[in-house]
Simulated scan of single mutants.
Amino acid sequence: MVMNIIAPPKPPLSRLSSAGLPRRLAAIVYDGLLLTGVLFGASALALGLAAALLGSEALKLHNPLTGNPFFSTYLLLVCFFFYGGFWIYGGQTLGMRAWRVRVQRRDGGGIGWWQALLRFLIAGLWLVPVAYLHQVFGVSVGLSLAAGLGCLLLLLALRLPDRGSETELVLLPKS
């Protein structure tokens, strides 16, 4: 005799609500301050290495880091690994933790490096007007910053980093 044993249905997973725009912006500001400190440290490390290799007198005459594409790439990688590392291992940067926000896949699991890279690149699009409006078109610095912040708000309001990387930012319950 074969018995059909049907497992009782699992209760539905409690769906976390999506993080709102003010909370996302607050986490961005918090993480921006932390990233500034990390970039200062990374720059000091590169400058110290340049001084050790070239000598301090040569460094006083000409700073080899100014306009150096390798140095710019190094700082970009530092930024990516700052965000990507936090997103991959725990789903939260320190700013996101302070504002109870977590990044996750749509099924609730953790994200991978490719998703982190997509999020990082799409979220970084707001820097394009900041960097190039002034240099290429001669627009004032204030106006290019305003255009960049407008792009940031548009990116966040449309949730383009979430859509492009198939992730979501959720609001965690109070503990």
Rank of each mutant, 00 (worst) to 15 (best):
W99L: 12
L35C: 04
V29H: 00
L61K: 08
A98M: 13
L65V: 05
G85S: 02
R100K: 15
T93R: 00
V78R: 00
Y74V: 04
L59T: 04
S17C: 02
S43W: 09
N63P: 09
R106Q: 09
L25G: 03
R102C: 08
A52C: 03
A50R: 07
L25I: 12
P22D: 06
V78D: 00
G95R: 00
R23Y: 04
S18C: 06
V29Y: 00
G84W: 00
G67M: 00
L77R: 04
W87T: 13
V101N: 08
F40I: 13
L47Y: 08
A98D: 00
L49S: 04
T93C: 03
T36R: 02
F71K: 01
A44Y: 12
L33M: 14
A42R: 05
E57Q: 13
Y89K: 10
L47C: 06
A44H: 05
S17M: 11
I28Q: 05
R23I: 07
F71E: 03
C79S: 15
N68A: 11
L54F: 05
I88D: 10
F82K: 03
G37L: 06
Y30A: 10
C79Q: 14
L65Q: 08
Y30M: 08
G85V: 13
P64I: 04
G20I: 05
N68S: 15
L53T: 10
A44V: 05
R24S: 07
G37Y: 07
V78F: 10
G84T: 07
L53V: 04
F81I: 12
F80R: 01
L94Y: 06
A51C: 05
R102D: 12
A51W: 11
G55S: 02
A44N: 13
E57A: 14
I88E: 04
T36E: 01
A46F: 15
F40M: 01
M96C: 06
Y83R: 09
Y74K: 00
F80A: 07
Y89S: 14
L25T: 03
V101S: 12
L77E: 09
W99I: 06
L94C: 05
R106T: 09
R24V: 06
L59V: 13
R102T: 14
L25E: 05
R100W: 05
T73I: 09
E57W: 06
V29G: 03
